[in-house]
Design a protein around this nucleic acid. Sequence first.
DNA 1: GACCGAGCTTACAGCGCTGTAAAAAAACTG
DNA 2: CAGTTTTTTTACAGCGCTGTAAGCTCGGTC
Lengths: 342, 342
Amino acid sequence: MRKVRLADVAAVAGVSMKTVSNVVHDYPHVTPEMRRKVQQAIDELGYKPNLTARRLATGKTGMIALAIPEIDHPYFSELSRYIAEEASARGYRVLVEQTLSNPAAERAVLNDREAGVVDGVIFHPVSMNSMEVARLKRDVPVVLLGESTMPVTADHVMIDNVVAAQEGVAHLLAQGRRRIAFLGVVEGDVTGSTDQRLLGYQQGLVDARMPLDPRLILSVTDFTPEESARAVREALEAGLGLDGLVCRDDRFATGALYALRTAGVRVPEDVAVVGWDDTELGRWATPTLTSIAPDKRELAATALQLLGERIDGYQGIGRHRIVSHSLIVRESAPVAAAVLSS
Amino acid sequence: MRKVRLADVAAVAGVSMKTVSNVVHDYPHVTPEMRRKVQQAIDELGYKPNLTARRLATGKTGMIALAIPEIDHPYFSELSRYIAEEASARGYRVLVEQTLSNPAAERAVLNDREAGVVDGVIFHPVSMNSMEVARLKRDVPVVLLGESTMPVTADHVMIDNVVAAQEGVAHLLAQGRRRIAFLGVVEGDVTGSTDQRLLGYQQGLVDARMPLDPRLILSVTDFTPEESARAVREALEAGLGLDGLVCRDDRFATGALYALRTAGVRVPEDVAVVGWDDTELGRWATPTLTSIAPDKRELAATALQLLGERIDGYQGIGRHRIVSHSLIVRESAPVAAAVLSS
DNA sequence: GACCGAGCTTACAGCGCTGTAAAAAAACTG
DNA sequence: CAGTTTTTTTACAGCGCTGTAAGCTCGGTC
């Protein structure tokens, strides 16, 4: 069966190509009879519009790229889901670009060697700060996710990390925790994301007039649970007397829970743990994980809204949107009453 | 800055469009001097080839679709990662199509209303059996994943579910488990995937001359951990005396671990649990989850290999590839020695 | 009955690139 | 050096669709 073209349908229906096109697009000013005739020809020939040709003619691709470090990181996979749903609702398809935190791959996202692939990009950079983004960004509309500081040429969506971290600390303090650690500062993380969370952690302690002990800031070399488990194990061995832990993300929290369990430390009795991102990993951890939950759906919707406006021609300065977050309280750091009753 | 076209570069370099195209594509028969001149014009103008136009001219899109039920299901997100990496290595980009197990969405994957979007599709159907796939499949090359029975018009990649389930059962039997349950049969699951695993479970018991107790086959109404937790809770209340559990996937196993823990049942001492898919969820569960692990990387590579051949014109009958799997032993169902020593 | 305007339909020139076939240039040959 | 072969470059017709502007119909007006 050879490819059926618009022209073929037009020939069979005995009308012009444009009329067929009008029927395909449900253009209002077409007489019912025409529409019927054309529709019949379409069905008969099994005509399917060629999207590539349409794109070339219109200049719109109907696709957006989602560039994230890892598809299978729980936070990103959950976020991807909402982005995909939101995009689909707005008539866009999603091209997933996995950067693996590789600077070259991230640069390629912005500095694309080719045009006409996508109408816009939603990008969560890791190895690139906002200056670099601004420098490299070319013609494609871009919305940034994550905690980089605000660039001028692109829009940006994030949660208020400082406040969120403060709330996490306050939650632990309210349970009477006094030796609260932060896990973890990641070597080579230049996005400022961890910085803001760390800042919020410190601010939370300062707000409560608690001392800051630099030994309670745990460092890790990468983003894996294995590495976070190592860091926690070492902290326990160092005898820091920690009784609370705020984690940079749920993966770290997961590794921490593992390290605590294998060391015979009870959670939450001995150490209460707060994660970040509210992923499935934490929802089913043992104990279930209290976690700072960005509103992922709102995040996705906002990102698509801003990107849509850019695609539709908005040219203004980079906008900055804060979406809401909440603290989901579960077993690993319950409210005070629950701890007392345990 | 207006769009720079091939013709613009040609004009500046003082050569034909085709020569510029040849330079862009590193076509060998171009004199160094020409190449230099053209390259300079390209750099000067900041020319970027328009992919859409190229696609229209060549008929190839360089994109494949990956149609899966849920992006954020751990198994699918991990699989997506490997597919994305493998695709990228072969010069393809991946368009993710989330069907949400919706029959209409799944049908749309095959029965695409539009042509020229992707060169091929990797599709993991859930609500559709192979007959329907065969009936709906049109022009696009398709490789199926998952456990549906073999269709004739599309290729198919899976693991040997029956054998894998038998191995899971054998592993539990080797530890002296005698009341082994299967979790769970999903209502409305028509893919045969669960059927094969259930069959393997039964075969494993029969092989060991163990009785089959239908009450040990636990049913669930959907694919969530919540639902599996409910099923396990009811099974415990029914006093079936179960001491082993083979789960249809890690998510079910996760829900099961939760239900067992909250019921005060020890894992693995009282009940040993085997999951399926070897996802991150299980790697960090408490206790860590023994799981049947499909070789996801091999799965991805095989699927892309077959799809690539189809795209390159292979027209033969549907091929059927079995990729390897293994049993990853962790705490939830350790080897016998480990149980004895506990 | 000539004229008008609203509503429909059509012709056709692109969109930016590549494949083909043919021309031009270069490299050999005897 | 004319004749031949090989290499390099060119012109141009598509790929299949849409936007534009122009053309056609037809009921309504005066």
